[in-house]
Amino acid sequence: MSELVMYEEEFRRIDEELKRLYQLANAKLVFLVDKNGQLISSAGDTHDIDTTALASLTAGNIAATGGIAKLLGQKEFSILFHEGEKDNIHISLVANKVILVVVFDQRTSLGLVRLRVKKSTQSLERIFEELDKKSSIEERDKGLTSPFSEITDEDIDRLFG
């Protein structure tokens, strides 16, 4: 099983990139989710939005669309766009690994969102490439202390009371 591991530095860079995208695309909300539905990071006004549920449903959406693509002999549909009455949502794959989601309204346009997403995708792809490298080096050298190195079976038992 391959775990997605996120380190401080890459997390900060991802966060900055999402904030940049949020501002430059004039979006309402930007977030990044892994393909299994776990929220990685977000930018924008999230206080009255259940981002955990949003992340899981977005991943479900990408998974279902990916299933349709395969049935049609396509590798994947890399961009999804849903138009709402007020808000719209633009969903795209980054490095075939994580999902970038932009929620926006009439203050911006689909064209601008697409353009900015394209630029951010390139930056994010670089970050994830480096993250991959770093994880495998850490894995090999066991350099960074894993949270599990200190966790005992008793700790785990205690968590479940």
Binding site: M1, S2, E3, L4, V5, M6, Y7, E8, F11, R12, D34, N36, Q38, I40, L144, S146, P147
Partner: peptide
């Protein structure tokens, strides 16, 4: 696939 985030400690 589990997701371990050292930054948010999750």
């Amino acid at each position: 696939m589990s997701f371990i985030n050292y930054s948010t400690r999750e």
